[in-house]
Computed example of a mutant assay.
Amino acid sequence: MTHSSTSATFAPPVMEARRWLEGVSFGAQRPLINVSQAAPVEPPHPDLRAAIAEAALHDDAAHLYGPVLGLPELRDEVAASVSRTYGGAVTADHVAITSGCNQAFAATIASLCGVGDEVILPTPWYFNHKMWLDMSSVRAVPLPTGQGMIPDAGEAEALITPRTRAIVLVTPNNPCGVEYAPDVIAQFADLARRRGVKLIIDETYRDFHSRSGAPHDLFADPDWADVVIQLYSFSKAYRLTGHRVGAMVAAPAQLAQVEKFLDTVTICANQLGQRAALWGMRHLGDWLAGEREEILARRGAIESGFAPLAARGWRLLGAGAYFAYVAHPFDIASNILAPRLVREAGLLMLPGTMFMPETDPSGAQQLRIAFANIDATGIGAMYRRLEALEL
């Protein structure tokens, strides 16, 4: 096969995991518990669906190309929200609307990197970040995380070379769920400024952060745009996964480069989706607060119910937002264990090998649990099945 950009990377992990279900039946007594993916499975709020329908029927512009960097009203709303949340000065010309947060990352890398450049990714990493770097011929430089799955800025500095263009942080983290403390984030921002690289901070899950205040103060720095590129997704907050709407916040000069990428890929983000995101931001604050409380309650159930598994040798490495990250006690690599869990326990979850370099053996002992779509009862059932495993 001729070498291509896509052949430089691996198959999509979630799609691979779904194939493990083929030929396996699940009875009423033990239905499948699917904790493989973070995407919401419920439709948007009924009033939001009505707003989408209203726009589809009566807003002619919703069916046409829009500005490449996004609906002006939505850019204004995002800027105001970021300024208010983080105590900073962000304006609409700092905001681009993208076709989901994955595209925001892709556009960011395209605007920063050339062939052979390097980007530092803490491990375990979000696999789509690694995939895009592979396809862009940009080297992903792994930064192993330490105690509590938290990366260390000092260790990151040792990895910087003349080809380094950016450091990526995901907080709350995918796959580990952990939240990076403000001082940790500040240390990485200081490092990025000192060494002349960008800090890309992916906050897809920020609406489900356990902190009541701002998760960091990066935007309080009047010169934040020299260093920081923030990525965000509307998919999780407003259940808009199928509409593909994300955002990035960066220097206007950076967005001028991003605009070139967006114009050649999608031209503009989905117009109905953008209107839905705007309506959600303006009208669903109380509802979103309730969604956050439910996710935090499920995180609590993950943590409080773990003791029986701990007694059998399991370790809870991280939990928060949509994810828990665990180490299993078996003498079986996780990429072998995970398909067996489908057949033997009716559980679909992803192995740590999907989030680690092939050269890092720790992924073989790890599993990711995306718990956002199962309630406390479902979490209890999942734990009982794991506790009963005899391998």
Rank of each mutant, 00 (worst) to 15 (best):
S5F: 12
P13M: 02
G23Y: 04
G23N: 04
S25Y: 02
V35E: 09
A38Q: 08
A39P: 04
V41L: 12
A50H: 10
L57H: 10
H58Q: 08
L64Q: 12
Y65M: 14
G66A: 11
L71C: 12
L74M: 08
R75P: 01
V78Y: 15
A80C: 09
V90A: 14
A96P: 05
A96Y: 09
T98W: 12
A107V: 13
I109N: 06
I109H: 05
G114I: 00
G116S: 10
V119A: 10
T123R: 08
W132G: 01
L133I: 06
M135K: 01
M135W: 04
S136Y: 08
S136H: 10
M149W: 05
I150W: 00
A153T: 10
A153F: 06
E157M: 02
T161C: 06
P162I: 00
R163I: 04
T164N: 07
T164V: 03
N174A: 11
P175W: 00
C176M: 11
G177T: 07
Y180A: 06
Y180F: 13
A186Y: 01
F188W: 07
A189L: 07
D190V: 13
L191W: 08
Y205L: 13
R206D: 09
A214C: 06
H216V: 00
L218P: 00
F219H: 09
A220H: 00
D221A: 01
W224K: 02
S235T: 05
A237S: 11
Y238A: 06
V245S: 00
V249D: 05
A251W: 07
A251N: 14
A256E: 15
E259Q: 13
F261Y: 12
L262A: 01
L262Y: 03
T264Q: 04
T264A: 03
T264I: 11
A269P: 03
L272M: 15
A276S: 04
A276Y: 03
H283P: 14
G285D: 10
G285I: 06
D286P: 03
A289T: 13
I295Y: 14
E303F: 03
S304A: 14
G305N: 13
A310I: 10
A311F: 12
R315C: 15
A319T: 15
V326Q: 13
P329R: 10
D331C: 07
I336A: 15
L337Y: 12
P339I: 00
G346W: 01
P351V: 04
S362Q: 10
A364P: 07
R368M: 09
I374A: 05
I374F: 02
A376R: 08
A381T: 06
R384P: 02
L386Y: 12
L391H: 14
